[in-house]
C-alpha cells in the first residue's frame, strides 16, 4: 500500500464564471480507502465525474494507473468502477437482468459473466431476490444492486459517490461492512461522503473538501492534530428551546474557540471542556436556555472541519 493508483494535480472544473473545483491535488494509494469528506455542494461529485471521464477538466491533470484523463478515457474506464450517488438501474428489469446488461457493457459475456453475476449477488446478499424486478426492491436493496454493478468487472479502483444517502441504518451498516471487505480483498476505494462517522469508520486517509478546495489531507490522526488538544462540547436543550441562532451567544466565553448550531444542538470547539463548562452553563441559563444534556467528545473530523471552516459539516 504505497504506490499511488490515482494522482491529481491542480485539478479544476469551471462552468462559465462558476468554479466548481478550484484546483485540488491529492493521490490515492493502491489498496486504501480514501475518503473525500465535505458538505453538499463542496465539489465531491464534480471531482468524481472528472476522474471517471464524464466531465472534462478545465485545468490541471489527473492520472489513473499511468493513463491520463481525458486522453486515455477508454483505458481508464476499464480500470475503474463507479457507484453513482443516484440509483442508476432499470426498474423494469430484474436484478439479474440488470447485472447481465451492465456486465455486457464491460465486455463480459457467456459463462464468465453468469458466474460473476452470481458472485456479486452473493456479495450483496441478494441472491434470493435475483429474479425479482428492481422496482419491487426497498431503497436499501436498490443501493446494494447499485454497488454490485460497480463491482462486476472487478475494477482496480472503485469510486463510490455517497453510496449510503437516504437508506435505513441496517442497509447502511451492511454497505459500510462491504466497503471494508472490498479493501481487505485488495481493491482501492475512493469514497465520498458528508457523514463524518462514515469517513472516520472507513478511511485510511481523508481529504476534506469545501467550496471546491481541498482544505486538509492526511490520516485521521494527522488531521486531528490540526485541532491540537481541542475538544468538542455538544449542548442539548429541552424541547421548545431551539438552539439555532444562539451559537453566537457562546463565542465570547473564555476558552471557546468556535461555536455553531447543528441538528438542534450547539457544538462548541473548546481548549479544555472541564474549564469552560461552568461559564457555558451560566451563559445558557442567563439566556433562558435550559441545558438538558452535555456531551464531551474527543477531537474528531467534525471538529477538524469546524476548526478549519468555522462551520459544521452539515451546515
Amino acid at each position: 500500500m504505497s504506490e499511488p493508483i490515482l494522482t491529481t494535480k491542480d485539478l479544476q472544473k469551471s462552468y462559465g464564471d462558476n468554479q466548481a473545483v478550484k484546483g485540488i491535488t491529492f493521490s490515492v494509494l493502491r489498496g486504501e480507502i480514501f475518503s473525500l469528506l465535505g458538505p453538499n455542494g463542496a465539489g465531491k461529485t464534480t471531482t468524481i465525474s472528472m476522474l471517471s471521464c464524464l466531465l472534462t477538466p478545465t485545468g490541471g491533470t489527473a492520472v489513473i494507473d499511468n493513463h491520463a484523463i481525458p486522453q486515455d478515457s477508454l483505458a481508464i474506464r476499464r480500470i475503474i468502477g463507479v457507484v453513482p450517488q443516484e440509483i442508476a438501474l432499470y426498474d423494469e428489469l430484474t436484478a439479474r437482468q440488470n447485472l447481465q446488461f451492465w456486465g455486457q457493457m464491460y465486455d463480459m459475456k457467456g459463462k464468465a459473466l453468469k458466474q460473476r453475476v452470481d458472485e456479486v449477488l452473493e456479495q450483496v446478499a441478494l441472491s434470493d431476490r435475483a429474479n425479482d424486478r428492481v422496482e419491487t426492491y426497498s431503497g436499501g436493496m436498490k443501493r446494494r444492486i447499485n454497488i454490485a454493478v460497480g463491482l462486476l468487472h472487478k475494477p482496480q479502483l472503485l469510486f463510490m459517490d455517497e453510496p449510503t444517502v437516504g437508506i435505513d441504518p441496517q442497509s447502511r451498516r451492511r454497505i459500510l461492512d462491504m466497503v471494508r471487505d472490498l479493501r481487505d480483498e485488495g481493491m482501492t476505494v475512493l469514497y465520498t461522503t458528508h457523514y463524518m462517522e462514515e469517513a472516520e469508520e472507513l478511511s485510511d486517509r481523508v481529504g476534506i473538501i469545501d467550496h471546491g478546495r481541498l482544505i486538509a489531507l492526511g490520516t485521521q490522526e494527522e488531521l486531528k492534530q490540526v485541532v491540537g488538544e481541542q475538544e468538542t462540547v455538544r449542548l442539548n436543550f429541552g424541547e421548545g428551546h431551539e438552539a439555532n441562532g444562539h451559537a453566537d451567544l457562546f463565542n465570547g466565553v473564555d476558552g471557546v474557540l468556535a461555536a455553531t448550531s447543528l441538528d438542534g444542538e450547539i457544538v462548541l470547539s473548546v481548549k479544555e471542556a472541564a474549564a469552560v463548562l461552568p461559564a457555558v452553563v451560566t451563559r445558557a441559563n442567563s439566556a433562558g436556555l435550559p441545558i438538558r444534556a452535555i456531551e464531551i467528545e474527543e477531537p474528531n473530523l467534525e471538529a477538524v472541519f469546524l476548526h478549519l471552516t468555522g462551520r459544521a459539516l452539515r451546515d
Binding site: S52, C53, L54, R78, I80, P84, E86, A88, Y90, Y106
Partner: peptide
Amino acid sequence: RYGTLRRLLVTPTR
C-alpha cells in the same frame, strides 16, 4: 434523466 446514461458512459462503451 435517471442517470443510466451517465453510468453507461463510464463503462468502456462508446
